[in-house]
Design a protein around this nucleic acid. Structure first.
Lengths: 92, 92
DNA sequence: GACTTATATGAACAAATATTTATATGAAGT
DNA sequence: ACTTCATATAAATATTTGTTCATATAAGTC
């Protein structure tokens, strides 16, 4: 039951910027410029984090003209975020 | 919906040693020496990580004679681990 | 085909986190 | 009281991770 996969996933989500990107994508597909705008961060920073999330399999992308659209790889990812939210309010 | 609480929780779990400690505690209360034995790590290292988990509210402890017994603060923590496991096998 | 827009990438640098080492504490046994 | 066993802690160090900066690519526009 490959523990390093689980850790890779956790580490990927356990970063403020990436966590916020996932939250943004909860609302559906977004292009990079929208994510940048919403988070108010550097383009390059967002790009690095998008790559990390993608490498981890959590998000997917497709090109649409000049823009590149990102989306959650699977709705079940929302479940994790919700789960974390519940636990965090319970303890921490 | 305090995002930093969620992040503190995630960062706490997203470490191999701490993750394994939690897994060990799935099986019920354990004293520090048992955890050290099971993980095969330095006493001091385990102690640091136990503190981190405790600070985060994920585990509790009680003294029993010379030993100190640790346990999960709440069974709902198992749910998170399971959730992560499922997602990790799905992607990553 | 030069120019702009949108995004990605690599290398340098900065910050955060984990690990080790050495020492302290506190309960129990003698 | 002294010693041992079990655990904790602080400071030093090592490692990992995130951020910035400068540059590259790729598609669309003039």
């Amino acid at each position: 039951m490959a523990i390093d996969k689980q850790l890779r996933l956790l580490k990927c989500v356990a970063d403020e910027t990436r966590f916020q990107i996932l939250m943004t994508l909860e609302g559906g597909e977004r292009c990079v410029c929208e994510i940048i705008e919403e988070l108010g961060e550097e383009q390059s920073l967002i790009s690095h984090h998008l790559r990390a999330l993608r490498k981890c399999g959590l998000i997917r992308r497709r090109r649409e003209g000049k823009k590149i659209m990102y989306r959650l790889a699977d709705p079940s990812i929302l479940g994790l975020l919700t789960n974390v939210e519940k636990l965090a309010s319970k303890f921490c």
